[in-house]
Amino acid sequence: MDALRYTLKRILLMIPILIGISMLTFFISNTIPGDPARLAAGPYADAKVIEELQEKMGLNDPVYIQYFRYMKSLLQGDLGNSNYSHQPVMEDIKQYFPATLELTFFSMFITILIGIPLGVISASKKDKIADQFARVLALIGVAMPAFWLGIILLLFFYLKLGVLPGSGRLDTGLAPPETITGMYTIDAILTGNWTVFTSAVIHLILPGITQAAVTIGMITRMTRSSMLEVLRSDYIRTAFAKGGSERRVLYGHALRNGMMPIMTLLGMTFGHSLGGSVLVESVFSWPGLGKYAVNAITYLDFPAVMAVTILIAVLFIIVNLVIDILYQVVDPRLNYE
């Protein structure tokens, strides 16, 4: 009950935050020089057409009127039409966002699977060879630019060995599965289409690893330092005094206690990659939100810019909320207040 009330309260708190963000984005994008009408009309349109278009798009009204008009349709689920793709922005997002979501889930999965155990090992074997190895690995992961790693992986696995595909989400010739979530792997499972599933997973590997490299490095380092702190605690000694094995003490007692900072960082990186990782998506021609956002900015496609910004803000707030709720699942000392 407490948990439910807390969650509702937090969701209500999202409203003022979102209003603030929408205002900021709207006014900033309106002060940027450049005329959306001219861009939409194309380079050869004459002045009269542009003027008509300006009137039609409501660009001549005061900014706050334009803002209220935008918010009104936003509340009805209408994000406006893209000036570039000439279709509703909502449709664009439905198309691009699941790709990013899929890539993010995949890379977070790799991050958790590798980063956390690596950090635990690193902490439990402090200053020994395993620790040095893990630390160097983490450092490389953090220090290496993602696009560079992406290109190297492409050169090696795609061009040289030819074992992994280098771009897109599916093999050419394969039709995407029926859209349920928009994530090809999930949709393929739901429709039982295993050829598509395999192809989708194979296409995720290189961009997934590239995206995960940095976060693995960060999570490993965070896990290590958090665990080192926890391993000095008295209750760890108690767990050993009971006859617990090292493995049991590390994973059964220490890790959960060291989870807080790790969760915070995971949440932040998760939110971040949901916003679309422009570089990774560009290198692997991944049709995701990051790529869409860059296009939108380049073409001064205000409805798209607004939509992406608000979407990312909402995602960040949701991820934060989930993490805050998880804190309390992990630590009973925290109350829902």
Binding site: S233, D234, Y235, R237, T238, A239, F240, A241, K242, G243, G244, S245, H253, R256, N257, V330, D331, P332, R333
Partner: peptide, 23 residues
């Protein structure tokens, strides 16, 4: 590990920090 906690056991000074806060 087999005899710790079984044949010989130990109690520590500060019971708050000696118990795992999350269990």
């Amino acid at each position: 590990e087999k005899i710790r906690g079984d044949k010989m056991a130990m109690i520590f000074q500060d019971p708050l920090t000696s118990l795992n806060p999350l269990h």
